[in-house]
Design a protein around this nucleic acid. Structure first.
Lengths: 190, 190, 190, 190
DNA sequence: AATGAATGAGAATTCATTCAT
DNA sequence: AATGAATGAATTCTCATTCAT
C-alpha cells in the first residue's frame, strides 16, 4: 500500500551529494535514507547494497558527464576555443560555490586501492574525460601531444579541486580553467 | 609481554602506510596494530584514540616534510633550478613505485569536510608547501606571481598523484615534475 | 528477525530489574539484551545509549511512583492514617520478598556524584516523595514539622532497605513502616 | 633500586577516598594509582587485585571503626548519654563537609548482591556497628528493645547519608543524630 | 619497589543488511 | 513500496592484570 516516495534516480542524486560531502566509508545508509526522507531499510528496495549504490552513483554520474560535458568535445561545429569555453562555463557552474568538489576524484582517491569494481568504473570515467579533452586539443597539437596535454588538464583540475576543498577557496578551480584556456589560445596565435 | 616491541614513531610510520593505502575511515585500529605486531588495545598506550593517532601522523609527516623537503627551498647557496631539481629527485624517490600517493592529499580529500582538527593541520601543511615553492620562484617571478605558480605546482602534483593512483602509472607524476622544472628554466633564458 | 519481540516499556522493565540487582556500572548492555531476549545491538533501536536507557528507567519509575504511590498522599477522602496504611501496603508489596531494594536509592548512591543528569532526575524523585509524605503529615503537624518528619521517613525507609539488602532480612522495612505509622497515630491521640 | 613512594596503608587511604567518591565498579586501578602518585602496575605490588584491594579497604575501615567508634560504646565510665554524644561528635567530624558519605553503605548497596566476599565483610561491619549501639541502649531499654532501636539508628544514619549525598545538604545527618540522642534522653526522664 | 609495555577479555556502539507486515 | 524491528559482525575503546627491567 505505501505510496512511492522516491525514484531510484532521486536516491542516486541524494546519495551522490552525501557521498561527495562525507566520503564513501564515512557515509552510512541511514544518512542516505535520511536525505531521501526514507528509513534505511527502504533503500534496499532500489539498491541491493551500499556498494552497489555507490557503483550506480558512479555510473549515473559518468553517464551525465558523457551527455552534458564530454559531448561538448565532439560537437562538430565548434572551434577548440569555443569547446573549452563551453566546457569551462559548464564546469564552473557545477563546482563553484559547493564544497563538495569532484565526486569521482574524491571516491577514486578513497576507494580505488581497495575496491576493484569502483576502480574499474572510475578508470573508465577518467579515461573518457581525458579522451574528450584530447579530442579538443588534437586539431592543434596532434594526437600524441594532445593526449599529454589533456592528462595535464585533468590532473590540474583535480588538483585544483583538492586545494579548493582544503582552503575553501574557489579561485583554484578558476585559475586552472584559465590555464587550460591558454593552451587553446596559444596555438591559434602560433 | 612487557618487553617493548615498538616505539611511538614506529607506530606512526606503520599506521601512515596503512592510512595511506586504505584511507582513514577504512582503516581499523586492529589493522594498524597488526601491522605493528601488537594487539589492538596496545596502540592505546601510545595514542589515546584513532583520531589522535591520525592527527599525530599528519603532524609527524608535516615535520618530516619541513625538514627534508620544504627546507630545500630555503637553502641559500642553491639556484632556483637546483632547488627544483633537488626537490624533484627527492619527491620521485618518495612516490614512484608505491601505490600510496600523498597521504596528506588523500586524507585531506577524505576528511577535511568532516574533521576540523585534521582540516586545520592539513591546511597548515599545504600552506607551507605552497610557501616553500613560492620561495623558489620568487627570485624569478616576484612575490605575487610566484605564489600563483606555486599553487599551480602543488595542484598539479596532487592531481598527478590522483591519476597515478587511478591508473597505476608513474608517468603522471614525472611529467608534472618536468613541467614544474620548465617554469624554472624558462626564466633563466629570459 | 523482524518481528517485534519487545516494546520499549518491556525493555525499561527488564533493565530496571537488572540495574537494580547489579547496579549501573556493573550491568552490561549484553545482560540487558539477554534479559529481553534480544541481541545487544537491538537495544539501541529503542535507547540510544546505556546512559539514556538508565535515564529513561529513572523517569519511567518516577512516573509510576507518581501515579501509584505519591498520589495516595493527595487523595482528598482519606485520613492521614488511611493514607499511610495504603502507602505501606503498597510499598511492602513492592519490596518485600525481592532482594533488589529501591532502584532510585541504589542508583542514587552509585551515580549521583558522577552523573549530573541522573543526579537531577533522582533529586526530583526524592523531592516529590518527600513532598508527598509531608502532605500527609501536614494536617497534624503543620507545614514545617511535616517536612522534617517526612524527610526522616524517607531516610528511614532507604536506610531500612539498605540493611535489608545487606542482611537479606525483610524485617527492617516492615519495622520502619511501623514507626512511620506511629507518627500518624500519635497525633490522633494527642 | 626505585625508592618506596608509598605504604600499603597510604594506598588503602587514598583508594578509600576514590572508591567512596565514585563507587567500586566506576573506579579504575589507574585512578587509584594516580591518586597515590604511582602507575597502575605498581598497585599490584601491594594488593594482588582490585577486589582484594577493596576487601582490604573494607577491613581497614572496619578496624578503624572498631578502634575509634564502636569502642566508645564499651567505655565503662561513660553514661549512655555521654557515649551517644561522643559518638555523634566523632561521626559528624567524619562526614560533615564531605560529599562522600559512608563507604561501607555505598559499597554495600553497590556490591552486596554480586560479591560474596564483600558481602560477608560488610555484614560483619554492620553487625558490629549495630551491636555497639545496642550496647549503649541496653542499660535503658533491655537487650531486645535495644537491638531494635540500634537497627533503627543505623538505618536512619545510612538513610540520612544517602539523602545528604543526593541533596548535598549536611542537615540530614545532623537531624538523624539529634533523634538518636533523643532516644538516650527520653529514657533518663522516664 | 616502581616502571612502562603489552595483553586479552569485554565493554559500548555502529552499521549494513534482512524480513515480516 | 515503505516500514520498523532485529540481527550479527565489526569497531573503537577500557581496563585489570602480568612481567621484564
Amino acid at each position: 500500500m505505501p505510496k512511492q516516495k522516491v525514484t531510484a534516480e532521486e536516491i542516486l542524486r541524494k546519495s551522490m551529494k552525501v557521498f561527495n560531502a562525507k566520503g564513501y566509508h564515512n557515509t552510512s545508509m541511514a544518512q542516505i535514507a535520511d536525505e531521501c526522507g526514507l528509513l534505511k531499510g527502504s533503500i534496499y528496495h532500489y539498491f541491493k547494497s551500499k556498494e552497489q549504490l555507490m557503483q550506480a552513483v558512479i555510473e549515473y554520474l559518468h553517464q551525465k558527464y558523457k551527455e552534458k560535458v564530454f559531448s561538448i568535445a565532439y560537437q562538430p561545429d565548434l572551434t577548440s576555443r569555443e569547446k573549452l569555453e563551453e566546457y569551462i562555463v559548464f564546469s564552473e557552474n557545477l563546482f563553484i560555490g559547493s564544497n563538495d568538489g569532484c565526486l569521482m576524484g574524491n571516491i577514486a582517491l578513497e576507494t580505488v586501492n581497495t575496491n576493484a569494481n569502483f576502480a574499474k568504473s572510475l578508470r573508465a570515467f577518467f579515461q573518457e574525460w581525458i579522451n574528450a579533452m584530447a579530442h579538443i586539443f588534437e586539431v592543434d597539437y596532434g594526437k600524441q601531444r594532445a593526449l599529454e596535454i589533456s592528462k595535464e588538464c585533468v590532473a590540474e583540475i583535480e588538483g585544483a579541486l583538492m586545494l579548493k576543498r582544503v582552503f575553501q577557496e574557489d579561485d583554484y578551480l578558476h585559475k586552472a580553467h584559465q590555464r587550460i584556456l591558454q593552451r587553446g589560445i596559444k596555438t591559434k596565435q602560433t
